[in-house]
Simulated scan of single mutants.
Amino acid sequence: MDRIAKILSFLESSPNDNFLQHALALEYIKIGEDTRARNIFEEILQVSPDYIGSYYHLSKLLERMEEVDLAVQWYKKGMDAAKAAGDNHAYNELQAAYEDLVY
């Protein structure tokens, strides 16, 4: 069974598991299913804005999709969420990626 099928089977019993949703989105990116991945990341962050890791991956994906303005917005939201959570490591990663994009 491939990774996507495994994750989908796990999601049947835990459909709201952010870790599994995030992992599924990353697998979709690997196979070039960027729109599917984007939708999953956006759903995660709509329901759980404190799921910090998804901000980085969504923003990077939006960069690749040439939606720079939207990527910038998500980086900023992610930095705000990381700061609120006291997650300095995530904040620094998001800030570095943001600055690479903007400057």
Rank of each mutant, 00 (worst) to 15 (best):
E12N: 12
A84G: 07
K60R: 15
K77R: 08
L8I: 08
M65R: 11
A5V: 10
D80T: 07
Y56R: 04
H57C: 01
I29E: 15
D50N: 10
A81G: 09
Q95H: 13
G86I: 10
D2Y: 06
Q21W: 00
N18K: 10
A97Q: 06
Y28R: 02
F41P: 01
E12W: 02
D80F: 08
L70H: 06
H57K: 12
Q73A: 13
R38D: 00
I4Y: 04
Y55Q: 09
L101F: 08
H89G: 03
F19K: 10
Y56F: 07
Q21D: 02
L62V: 11
F19Q: 12
A96T: 11
F10G: 00
D34A: 01
I29L: 15
S13E: 08
D34M: 05
S9K: 15
I52W: 05
L11T: 02
Q46H: 14
A97Y: 01
K83M: 10
E93N: 14
I31P: 02
M1C: 12
Y98T: 02
D100G: 05
D100Y: 11
E93V: 08
Y103K: 15
L62D: 06
F19Y: 08
A82P: 07
L8M: 12
Y103P: 02
I44M: 01
A37Q: 00
R3S: 11
N39E: 15
E67Q: 15
A81E: 06
I44T: 02
D34S: 08
W74S: 07
A85D: 06
L11M: 05
F10W: 14
S59I: 00
K76F: 06
K6P: 02
M79R: 08
A84Q: 14
L45C: 11
N92W: 11
M1S: 15
A5H: 10
H22Q: 03
Y55M: 10
E63I: 15
K77P: 02
D80Q: 15
L24M: 04
M1R: 13
K30M: 14
L61A: 06
I52K: 00
I40K: 01
L11G: 04
V68H: 09
Y98D: 03
A81D: 05
E93G: 07
G32Q: 08
R38K: 14
A82T: 11
Q21E: 07
F41W: 11
E33G: 01
F10M: 14
K60I: 09
V72W: 03
N16Q: 14
L70K: 14
L11C: 02
Q46P: 01
N16P: 03
V47W: 05
P49R: 07
V68T: 15
E99V: 00
Q46I: 09
M65G: 01
D50T: 14
R38Y: 01
R38F: 00
A23V: 02
A25G: 03
I29N: 12
D50S: 12
D87C: 05
Y75N: 12
K6H: 15
G32N: 12
S13K: 10
A85L: 13
V68G: 05
F41R: 07
L24S: 01
E67I: 03
E42P: 03
L45K: 10
